[in-house]
Amino acid sequence: MDVFVELVFHGLIAACIYALLASGLVFIYSTTRVFHLAHGGVIALSAYAFWFTTSVLSWNIVLSALMAIVTSTVLGLVMNELVYEPLRRRNSKGLGYLIATIALLMISGALIIAIFGGQNQSLGFSSQVHVIVGAHVTTLQLLLMATTVVIFFLLHLLSTHTRFGKTMRATADNEVVASVLGIDTRQIRRLTFALGSALAGVAAIFYALEFNLDPNMGVMMAIKGFTAAVIGGPGSMTGAIVGSLLLSGVEQASVWYLGSSWRNAMAFTLLFIFLLMKPHGLFGRRFS
């Protein structure tokens, strides 16, 4: 029974990381209609920036965390300005963005190996362990769960209760009408990328503190975030949460029944089944 409770907590922690990943992806997709897979690369690069500043330059951890968020925000903005906006000016549709974002994802991985080397890295960070209903949970993991909940709450408030949220949704629904109504859609997309990528920085910090870093982690993060977002429906924040929980649940179940090596295989199979049977996800609207 204890093992089961541990597994549930592990599942929740993984689900929080996936939800942070997917929230950025969904946030960006729902405004710009760009399926920003390179988000995984942004997270990987910022996680390495965090590791480098704390472990090698031995900066204060708060300063490093700021550095990670600045790195991710700048990377997201640069990708948007240099690649996605020019593509938009060319009237490119989904396929062009998809190839571009895969290219950016691969560049991120190559950059990590070129700058930080090909070895795995670890921060060796540890925090106090608590025992909650028989499961061992660290302060960091509790903080991660709390942060995830707060971030989703803030994102929800942002999109439903602010002017910025309204203009975001207007831009997503119909760019032409939005710009006729005087909304600077380009500026809205820029802000969306900045904010979505800042979320990537937060995800990167928690990931770096909790897990080992490896140069190919960007691809794995992109796939996991992508899976959670697709299961939930790529335009929906609620979907991102449910998708992350479902993904993590399936992963833990396959660890429990089949062994840990089947974790990714079952996750991918879940993704594939959803893409075939329910391509617009659980909470997705059909976009033409």
Partner: peptide, 17 residues
């Protein structure tokens, strides 16, 4: 369109796994 590209990308992940 791009959703077919995503499905086939998912297929690549499954083959890899």
């Amino acid at each position: 369109g791009d959703y077919y590209a995503l499905v086939t990308l998912g297929f690549l992940f499954v083959v890899f796994a």
